[in-house]
Every structure is written in structure tokens, then in C-alpha cells.
Design a protein around this nucleic acid. Sequence first.
DNA 1: TCAGTATACGACCAATTATGTCGTGGTTTC
DNA 2: GAAACCACGACATAATTGGTCGTATACTGA
Lengths: 157, 157
Amino acid sequence: MLKLTKKADYGLIALKYLAEHPETPAVSAKDVADTYGIPPQLLAKVLQRLTKSGLLRSHAGMNGGYSLAQDARQISAYEVIHSIDGPFFITSCVKGAKPCELTPSCTVREPLARVNETIAGVLKSISIQDLAEQEPHTAAHGGDAQGLVSLSAHGTE
Amino acid sequence: MLKLTKKADYGLIALKYLAEHPETPAVSAKDVADTYGIPPQLLAKVLQRLTKSGLLRSHAGMNGGYSLAQDARQISAYEVIHSIDGPFFITSCVKGAKPCELTPSCTVREPLARVNETIAGVLKSISIQDLAEQEPHTAAHGGDAQGLVSLSAHGTE
DNA sequence: TCAGTATACGACCAATTATGTCGTGGTTTC
DNA sequence: GAAACCACGACATAATTGGTCGTATACTGA
């Protein structure tokens, strides 16, 4: 149904939190979980995966916890989501594995693959820093999705 | 995990098929299902929903079936997906209902809501006609998302 | 008018996935 | 060495998706 998992949500929330507290050397999972009412162990697991992906740095022991391994500006929402939920694809079939059993089945696949890329581009253009700052002047920040998106609300529905 | 449901996929495939056979007065669900190896009854239900949404026109009886109720150029992927899967939202909380129990929980919500709009815009800019034509010269076709997207493959991964 | 083909729709089951928990072990600090 | 952390795998549970069944209804053509 085209929505993020809670894990990804939690991950973004946590990273945003870390970006907002650059002074603190390390923030524990429990800390963040308490603040936002997130199940601690679940968040812990999410943060662990982000650590393995190199987005976070962990520190065990008392007063330990997590801290950003990169500048908040360098971490994109895409990386976070990808790291937590794995590679996402709009269509179910485009996985490199077997292409849809039924041969002509995925004639829609190709155009949708481009939609997929576009979405990925959007996500890549959003950094954790963007999340931390309330105002989204977004775009024109980072990456390779130059001018691809103008995040102006054009409430068509 | 940010992917379409099979139902939505089936719906798009079926509409594309209809767009490709404008001569046939009506195509039965079974017909399409056979062609693509889709469970007939499931597809039927999908098409029924699209009919209720006004995207399709149904005709019972022998030689009956479904036909596009609008020009293929007027039907966007967004409408199809929205009609089948209901309103999609990137974040779980933005539903108008209750805003996330835990108050500050969704600080990420606002920026992501804009991502959501962007994606919706992309989907709205893709018409069934676009799917039917293999080459995606896309955009500059239809709607209100003018120039918002340039669906050029920029394989960043 | 009757048989055949089709949609319409609700209820239901099965499979997958998402969400959350438990237990155990390792590491650092005090 | 105890307290406060992270790390990780195995479960258990809930929600969603995917798919089926049965029945009712509508239309066509002989």
C-alpha cells in the first residue's frame, strides 16, 4: 500500500533525534524509545541495523549509546529506509530473481521501474538534517536529484 | 515496504490491456486473467472496484466484460492505485484520525507528508496510455504535475 | 423461456509480512 | 563486579494481502 514500515519510521525519528542533539556524545536506544513511546527493544534492533550499515556508531557500556557516524547532511532518508527495510521496489517482480513466472505479465514493470527510480531520487534528496530542521526548504541541498522535485504542496486532493 | 500490492498491479495490467485493445467492445475478466496468468476471481474483484470508481464500465451477459469508462489518457496510475488500495500514505500516522498517540512522535511526519505528495504527483502524471506505449516519453502529457518529474533513468544504484 | 456467460458481492481461508518480546551473551564504565 | 549499555537470534502475535467459494444477478442468443 505504498507506506513505510514502522521500523523505518522509528529509524528516521531516532536519527532525527540524534541530529538534534549533536552535543550528547551518545544517546541510548532506551532514551529515544522513552522519549517517543517506542518499544525499546524494537528500536534497539533498528538502531543496530543502522549501525551495521555504517550510518550510526555504537558505544557499549555505561553512558553508551548511539551517535551519527556521518554528518546529518550526508545521511539521506533513502539510506535509512533502504538499510532498515531492504531494497524497496514499487513492483513486486523487479527483484533480479525470476521475472514474474508468467512471461508477459509485467508489461507495466518497465514504466513503473522509472517511477520507482523517481521516488528513490526524492528520498535520496532528503537528508536527516532536513528532517531536523522543521522548515523544509528541501531540495537544492544534496545529491544527484538536482531540481527533480519541488516539494511545494499542491494539494490536488 | 513501499511497494504496490498485487491487486494494484493487476489493475494496472488490466487497464493497460484494455487501452491496447480499444476495438474490442468489452473484455472479460477471465480473458485478461488467462492472458496474464492472474487468478480470475481476484482480478474480477479488482475490476469491480475500478468499475465502482468510475474508471471502468461493465457489461454483463454473453460477450460482456469491461471497457474503459474514460480515455486512457485521462486515467492516471494514481487513480487506479488509490481506487484499489485506498488512500496511501508514506507515514502511518497521517490519516486524519488520531495523530500518533504519543505526541511528539511524528516530528518526521511533516517533511514526509511532502514526500508523499511528491510521489502522488508522480503517479498522477502517469496515465494508462503511458503504460500502453512502451516508450515512456512520459511527463508533459497530462495533469497538474507539470514538469515535476523527468522520468529519465539516472541509475544511481 | 431456457441455457450459457458474465458481472457483483460477501464471507471466508491461507500465506505472508510486520510488529513486538524474550533470553542470552558481550562490553564498557564506575 | 555490578550496573548500564549494545548485539543478536529465536520466537510469538497481530495485521495485511492474496486468493477461494458460493451465490445472486444481469444480459445474450437460440
